[in-house]
């Protein structure tokens, strides 16, 4: 099983040189954008402007931002319903995402998809899927399309540690390994599948080894450290682009908020959440690194903070002023009219 050897999470200290100043600044900005966007979404939900289910990504930002830095045009990203961060990371507009959350015509799905169902072919984002684990087989299909077209693009297929117990995940591992499909399977292990901790749900404790029977190399990565994520992502992308088949990354991460807006999160202590926030926060870590190792000043960071705040406020304004979809939209987009 040498190929599937597992690396241990890397400490924050080991990561410093992997990202230059500019790239780290970009990562800081993108993580902050997701954080502020999600806080705003939570606020709008509280005001009744966003309905239904709303799963916030706060705490996990380093995962999508670090991996996105490894991708190029034509690569595909697919994930579950906790998808706002992934969309912003791929470069989708905050306006379009927020307006979808409020169910308005200016949203990415014209208000017909909502928080869990958004897409952008242009940005290579293939959803936004509400059925736990379904995106894993679909993501294998994105990788299949690259294999079929014989290009060197990769499919980054995100799912939670909860989804890792779905049967189709292993069907997809087998298919991807059998056909050597360029798929990076990314398990975002935030410790809790809704209210069920990994210990109570999975007999396998080191999820990075879950692809081992199929010879899929796996790594555990400190998903709270954007530099470590980027480093691991580069290894995974290189492996897939070279035609070596799939790769598995287990991102050890943490969500600060409940599973969805209506989750009181009684299955963990307040102290546990506080500890993660205070000691492992990806944005604070990046901020400190920028100032200590790269000489970035408070003033420079303030410019980024203000820019992010303005984008988020603009998206919230847009999401409240964009009209609801016309009633005629009820009957559109069910089938494509034959050419």
């Amino acid at each position: 099983m040498a190929e599937a050897a597992t690396r241990k999470p890397r400490g924050k200290g080991a990561a410093a040189p992997a990202m230059g100043r500019d790239q780290l600044l970009r990562a800081y900005r993108d993580m902050l954008l997701i954080r502020r966007f999600e806080e705003k979404a939570g606020q709008l939900y509280g005001m009744g402007l966003i309905g239904g289910f709303c799963h916030l990504y706060i705490g996990q930002e380093a995962v999508v931002v670090g991996l996105q830095l490894c991708l190029k045009d034509g690569d595909q990203v697919i994930t579950s319903y906790r998808d706002h961060g992934h969309m912003l990371a791929t470069g989708m507009e905050a306006r379009g995402v927020m307006a979808e959350l409020t169910g308005r015509i200016g949203g990415y799905s014209k208000g017909k998809g909502g928080s869990m169902h958004m897409f952008s072919r242009e940005k290579g984002f293939f959803g936004g899927h509400g059925i736990v684990g379904a995106q894993v087989a679909l993501g294998a299909g994105l990788g299949f399309a690259n294999w079929y077209r014989q290009n060197d693009n990769v499919s980054v297929t995100y799912f939670g540690e909860g989804a890792s117990n779905q049967g189709q995940v292993y069907e997809s591992f087998n298919l991807a390994a059998l056909m050597k499909l360029p798929v990076i399977f990314v398990i975002e292990n935030n410790k809790y599948a809704m209210g069920t901790s990994l210990d109570r749900a999975s007999a396998s404790k080191d999820l990075s080894k879950n692809g081992a029977p199929w010879g899929i190399p796996g790594e555990q990565v400190n998903g709270m450290d954007v530099t470590a994520v980027k480093e691991a992502g580069e290894r995974a992308v290189a492996h897939c682009r070279a035609g070596n088949g799939p790769y598995l990354l287990e991102m050890k991460t943490y969500r600060y908020r409940g599973h969805s807006m209506s989750d009181p999160a009684k299955y963990r202590t307040r102290e546990e959440v506080q500890k993660m926030r205070e000691q492992n926060d990806c944005i604070e870590t990046a901020r400190k690194l920028l100032m200590d190792a790269h000489g970035v000043t408070e003033a420079e960071l303030k410019v980024i903070d203000d820019e992010v705040k303005a984008i988020v406020q603009d998206s919230a304004d847009f999401a409240q002023t964009s009209p609801e979809p016309d009633e005629s939209e009820l009957y559109t987009d069910i089938l494509i009219e034959a050419r």
Binding site: F126, A137, L138, G141, L142, F144, A145, Y148, L175
Partner: peptide, 13 residues
């Protein structure tokens, strides 16, 4: 389950 999902993903592209 696996190959149907994979085919649907390919069709999305």
């Amino acid at each position: 389950h696996g190959f149907t999902g994979m085919a649907v993903g390919a069709a999305f592209t």
